[in-house]
């Protein structure tokens, strides 16, 4: 990934905040704004963005920040930041990762241990969470967001001290209204999750149940099942074979 493509999200954000829109021209202005601050740390730039949007708050959701050094820097730079640890069932997560990365490189992803990756990332988040005051860390089943988004959004908002009225929750149910819910302009192409940009609507519905037990079928030579360490951590995170909240509405669609 080039430096330019990694900065696409930042350029789009700055363009939106400086000019109220994301065009080739405003992205150019954002590029100059960033270059003028090339001597600053990421934290200093983030703090400047925060000042620009105050009293609203910034949300940082880069998966690449789930590294010990990155999380520690965020905590040290923004001691009042709150952290939401979003989890996914290890089987669904490994299958999904495999489907995305299986064709990459001459040997595909056969050498990559998705199970260990899932375990490391989640252990890291839990261990990091324990360094925070309890009110600054919360765990959330990603599956539950799709199963019952209104309930989840209301509880997240309550935790953050935000509005929980129907108008506010209705807005959260429409991520497609976000100025970032589209492909960026030339000069800032990308800058968000590709799947989200291609289809930004919230797809609420029942998540197909997947078991914790059973062979790891994405592997070239499938193991008989998850390592006991993975099973224990999955249990701690609330994943088993019957592991999702029962949805209140039986008419909702299944989400794959």
């Amino acid at each position: 990934m080039s430096v330019d493509s990694r900065l696409a999200g930042l350029k789009r954000t700055v363009a939106e905040l400086l000019s109220g829109e994301q065009t080739t021209e405003t992205v150019g202005a954002a590029q100059r704004w960033i270059e003028a601050r090339a001597h600053l740390s990421s934290a200093a730039i983030f703090a400047e963005l925060q000042r620009m949007i105050s009293p609203r708050g910034l949300v940082e959701k880069s998966p690449t920040n789930t590294r010990p050094d990155a999380l520690a820097r965020i905590r040290d730079s923004f001691p009042d930041a709150v952290f939401l640890h979003v989890t996914r069932h290890p089987r669904a997560n490994c299958r999904s990762q495999h489907s995305v990365y299986k064709d990459r490189g001459p040997e595909g992803d056969q050498a990559f241990d998705y199970e260990q990756h899932w375990r490391r990332r989640n252990r890291l988040c839990l261990e990091f969470g324990a360094t925070l005051p309890a009110s600054q860390y919360m765990l959330l089943h990603g599956e539950w967001v799709f199963e019952d988004p209104r309930t989840v959004f209301a509880q997240i908002s309550e935790w953050l001290g935000l509005r929980t009225d129907d108008t506010a929750i209705d807005a959260m149910m429409r991520p497609e209204d976000s100025p970032y819910a589209k492909i960026g302009p030339a000069g800032a192409f990308g800058g968000n999750n590709k799947g989200f940009m291609a289809n930004p609507q919230l797809r609420a519905g029942r998540i197909p149940k997947v078991p914790l037990a059973g062979p790891l079928d994405w592997m070239a030579e499938p193991a008989a099942g998850f390592d006991p360490k993975t099973r224990h951590l999955a249990h701690q995170l609330g994943y088993g074979w019957d592991d999702l909240p029962v949805p209140q509405d039986d008419n909702i669609q299944e989400v794959v």
Binding site: R123, E127, A130, K229, H232, L233
Partner: peptide, 10 residues
């Protein structure tokens, strides 16, 4: 009740 290797987190 944590895991054999010790539960992590709060």
């Amino acid at each position: 009740l944590g895991t054999p290797r010790g539960a992590v987190g709060h």
